[in-house]
């Protein structure tokens, strides 16, 4: 799912795509689902960056 979201924002390019993906997840995901993501290294790089950002933002 996170990869799919990331793919749809990928066109915006790197940083912007990760920001948009993070924002989207923040808006629509339950925080426990975000927390449950655990290891994000297997994800698409944009999705992984988005999760990194979500963790920083808390």
């Amino acid at each position: 799912m996170a990869n799919q979201i990331a793919a749809n924002f990928a066109i915006a390019g790197g940083e912007a795509a990760a920001r948009a993906t993070a924002e989207h997840i923040r808006q629509f995901w339950n925080s426990r689902m975000i927390a449950a993501m655990g290891d994000t290294s297997g994800l698409d790089p944009i999705a992984a960056a988005a999760f990194a950002q979500l963790r920083i933002d808390g």
Partner: peptide, 8 residues
């Protein structure tokens, strides 16, 4: 906090 969707 947003809740769960049906599949979730």
């Amino acid at each position: 906090d947003p809740g769960l969707r049906i599949p979730d």
